[in-house]
């Protein structure tokens, strides 16, 4: 008779089992304090890892959502910008500018300092920038949405290109304005101190260009300083037509101010803080013509950082203005 292998196998397999002693021994190992301590520590470490991962997943998810929202917002914003209208019209007209100047020029006495035509022009320029910005925002809000536009893959590039066009248009607007009239004298000046920098405008009413070596210092104080005359950055960019002069270093390293015939320029002199804190300082601006006699201008500094001219110089300036009225005074806008 054929033996059923399965029955034999089942019977044999059931003999494979732990004896009572083995069971007790294994249970003792499993139930020992050492095992419990060892594995409880493992469990603790594992749980700590799980909690850490849960935190990472949680905050990582939040960060991913925020990043996604930011990216979508940025793309939508860029998509709106690329549909905006170009602004080409000047924000400040010549008449507006003349009005500004007339406001200051029509006063009984010209307060030399902040309320000067040069300062007024700066204010007008800032106002123009704000107007441009406002017009840009209005245009963005009212711009039609062009759904057929295909350049959405480079919104950032388009955004920067657009900004450059707007800046270029603003520069072109300034170019179209008439140059500011300047007081008619050989070396007229308006000056003011802003943020520790003395700004002074010099004009050349002669028929020939002038070249000077320029330096400045405080002569009445023992701790006098010597400062380089530099061209302010905004004069190079925004007002380069108005200020037709230039500063170049000669072979010896000295700055040479070049002002063409009937031109003018603004110079900027950084005044050290320790000098500005002292009262009754006498700031001297020395101009050494390449050929000719030295010209010196003395300006007193008061404690509140305003530059106030001496009475004589003030009078000279007023007389010069009265001798040849500026165009804005002729226009009668004041």
């Amino acid at each position: 008779m054929k033996t059923d292998a399965l029955e034999v196998y089942i019977r044999a397999e059931k003999q494979i089992r732990l004896t009572a002693e083995q069971r007790a021994e294994m249970l003792a190992v499993i139930g020992s304090p050492a095992a419990a301590e060892q594995y409880s520590e493992k469990v603790y470490r594992q749980k700590r890892r799980e909690i850490r991962w849960q935190r990472i997943e949680k905050w990582g998810g939040i960060a991913a959502v925020l990043t996604l929202v930011f990216c979508i917002g940025f793309l939508v914003r860029a998509g709106i910008r690329q549909n905006t209208v170009q602004i080409t019209a000047p924000a400040v007209s010549e008449a507006d500018l003349s009005g500004y100047l007339a406001h200051f020029a029509g006063k009984e006495t010209v307060h030399i300092g902040r309320e000067t035509p040069a300062y007024a022009y700066q204010q007008a320029r800032r106002s123009q920038q704000e107007d441009l910005r406002q017009m840009q925002q209005d245009a963005e809000l009212n711009a039609p949405r062009d759904s057929t536009y295909s350049g959405r893959f480079l919104p950032v590039l388009w955004w920067f290109t657009e900004r450059c066009i707007v800046e270029q248009n603003a520069l072109q607007t300034l170019k179209e304005c008439e140059p500011l009239p300047v007081p008619a004298q050989l070396l007229g000046r308006e000056y003011c101190v802003e943020d520790g920098i003395l700004y002074m405008t010099v004009a050349n009413t002669a028929d020939t260009p002038l070249d000077w070596f320029a330096e400045c210092g405080i002569t009445s104080d023992k701790t006098g300083f010597h400062a380089e005359i530099t061209m302010p950055q905004y004069a190079m960019s925004w007002l380069k037509d108005y200020y037709s002069g230039s500063i170049n270093a000669d072979a010896t390293g000295r700055n040479v101010l070049h002002i063409p015939a009937h031109g003018c320029m603004e110079i900027a002199v950084p005044v050290p803080a320790e000098q500005r804190d002292l009262t009754e300082q006498l700031l001297t601006l020395n101009f050494y013509p390449v050929a000719g006699e030295k010209l010196s201008y003395h300006i007193s500094l008061d404690s509140d950082e305003q530059v106030m001219p001496r009475a004589e110089e003030h009078r000279i300036l007023r007389m010069a203005v009265e001798a040849e009225p500026a165009p804005w005074e002729k226009s009668g806008l004041s």
Binding site: I16, M26, V29, I30, A35, Y39, S40, K42, Q46
Partner: peptide, 30 residues
């Protein structure tokens, strides 16, 4: 016993199967 037999099926060695069984239950504590 079930775990012991399963381990024995793979190793063919009773002693090794017992070790595997004990280690499996120790790991169960984790």
């Amino acid at each position: 016993d079930t775990v012991l037999r399963a381990a024995w099926h793979l190793t063919g060695d009773r002693g090794i199967a017992e070790d595997c069984t004990q280690e499996a239950f120790l790991r169960l504590m984790q």
